[in-house]
Design a protein around this nucleic acid. Sequence first.
DNA 1: GGGCTACATGAGACTCGGTATCATCACCGC
DNA 2: GCGGTGATGATACCGAGTCTCATGTAGCCC
Lengths: 145, 145
Amino acid sequence: MTETSTLPTVDRAGPRQTRPRRLVAELIAGRTGHFTAADLAADAQGRGLPLGRATIFRTLELLLGGGALERIDLPDGSHAYVECAPSHHHHAVCSRCGSVVDFDDAELAAVVRAVARRTGFRIDSHRLELFGLCPACQAGERSAG
Amino acid sequence: MTETSTLPTVDRAGPRQTRPRRLVAELIAGRTGHFTAADLAADAQGRGLPLGRATIFRTLELLLGGGALERIDLPDGSHAYVECAPSHHHHAVCSRCGSVVDFDDAELAAVVRAVARRTGFRIDSHRLELFGLCPACQAGERSAG
DNA sequence: GGGCTACATGAGACTCGGTATCATCACCGC
DNA sequence: GCGGTGATGATACCGAGTCTCATGTAGCCC
């Protein structure tokens, strides 16, 4: 390994503030509901922004790691990303417009405990996702027939 | 469309019983815990069985449709398949040995109702997956230190 | 049992989300 | 402003899954 004991400028700060990262953050802020990396790439191309695919994936990973973003699994098995608070919570996803709302899992904890007791499993993590129609899309459905 | 009103031999029965499909069923039966399509392909190749990749995917899809199999999303975002009963239920997945146990969602229904009330969403479907250690792997962890 | 036909197969090309590589660029602490 | 290090992006690559199409075969009818 031959490692020097005095690291010159390593570990001085968090991730760098770069133009591409700001662009990705802007694109995400300009979206509503969930989105994929491909969506962001298309947005960037549509707006003529110079943004590599790899950079988009890396920035998404960074945001995932920081908790500002979460990955959700849609019913069809594909992945999408949503902006959210860094605390532990779950998502309800509108299957029509893609909007997402967070909710906490106070009641869910009881379910998890019950399952753990019944199965003998030691539950370390869990994932709950709800799919349906948001209030706006329900209203649209009613008025549209 | 030019469709003939008398379909000659269509719709006479369910899916055919073929050798490749029996092979896939055998491979699945010979597994414990969750598995991927690639696992089955490797099994088949290892046992010198002639089985196309496309056929494996098609047979998995068939079994998914029939409810004999379910797809789960692992914490790392990858997909796997598990054998299970066709009734609605959820899975607890051992993150060490991959074994899976089913549990029903009697208590979960209350959680879903509460979220629907609070968010205004009309919840049509949901997914809950628990990850942790099965009893056997907990015992192994304790005895191994 | 034989023939027939629609369904199933499998090789391989393709798509798509995501990762690895690597030469070049630019942030930012000094 | 300099310098070093982390970031970028073009591109190749990977793995899961789908599509195509010529060929094979299950299984119904006789």
